[in-house]
Each structure stands twice: as C-alpha cells, then as structure tokens.
Amino acid sequence: MLDRRTFLTGALSATLLAPALARARVSAASTVRVVVDGGCEDARAFARACGLSESAHQDAASLAATLEDMRETACVGLGRDSQVFVLTRLLASRGYRPVYEGRHELVAARTRHTLRGARDAVRTLATALADAGDAWPRWLATAAPRLAHAASLEQATARTVSGLAARGDGPGLLVSWCLLRA
C-alpha cells in the first residue's frame, strides 16, 4: 500500500503515442503530455501502452509544477477522479479544453465505460472496450488520441461494459481524458 499518491508523467512524441494523432488536430511533430495515476495497475498499463517509463514518478507538488510549465499540444491520461478534477481546472487556466472524457467504473465485478467525445470515435472505442476484457487500458491508450478530433466534449456519449473486472488495486472509478490547447 502506497502512503501517498504518485503519478507517472512524460512528454511523448505524438507519433509514438498513436499514429492517429497525425490525422487529428495534433500534428505529428508535436508532443503530448501523458499523466497517469502511479498507484494502480490499470493506469500503469495505460502508461506502458503509451510508451511511458515506469520510473517517471512525480508527487502531486512536482506534477503541479510540471503542469504549470506545460507546453505540449495535448494532455491525455488515466487517473482518479480527484486528479482529473484538479488537472483539468489547472490546465483550463492555461487554455486547455476537454475534448474527451471517459469514466471507467467497477460495477458488479465488471468495468462499465461511459465515454464522451466525438461521436464516431467514442462509438469505435466503446466497441473495442467491450471486447477488451482486462486489457481495456491498453485499448484505451491506442484509441483515445483519436478523440482529439472532437471540437467539444458534448458531441456524443457511448456506454459499454468490459467482460472482466479492473484489477483489485484500483479505486473503483478511473477517469480518462484528452485536453487540447486552444
């Protein structure tokens, strides 16, 4: 059991993160900030799928400083609701706007996904997650950057359920997001 929250974060090339970004509003030449909760396996799986080093730990104070200096075009991640709450508001004051948000909730030993973002992208992602089992964070990491196509958060909502539960060290609710610099 960790005694405090830690984060994995890093700035990755958009092309490394996902080829889809090249077709999105994020150019291949730009970088994307990835932030995940360091304390639960689902989030770490997301980080690995993004190519993030597991040694890139930060505590909340240094993460806040990182966000204050952020220059990346987009920020994506998977973490606890409280982290996303703070992060989205800190970055809003720096001109970043949410274009995708997903809620991944443990319900009756299954993971229920509620995704909001660009219509086609969230529907495609919902289909992928339905068949993903406990590998859903990896699918999410691959597909979520496509959601950067969206102009706003409100375009569509898709819901699905993964066949297997999240790993036992999770909080019961994780939130994924994509923020784009205006």
Binding site: R4, A60, A64, D81, S82, Q83, V86, E105, L173
Partner: peptide, 29 residues
C-alpha cells in the same frame, strides 16, 4: 502510514493538490 508524508510536506510549507485525493472516497466526490 497514509497522511504522514503529506503532513510532513505541509509542515515544511510545500504546496500541492494531493489532499484532494480524499474526494475519491465516494468516486467523483
């Protein structure tokens, strides 16, 4: 134990947003 490192940092005057973690107690809190 939980809270020890956080309060040690606060006693040193280190500002952070870590304490918001308690909101996860009820999901989106």
């Amino acid at each position: 134990a939980p809270g020890v490192a956080l309060h040690a940092a606060l006693a040193r005057g280190v500002a952070s947003t870590e304490a918001h973690a308690v909101l996860d107690w009820v999901g989106a809190g």
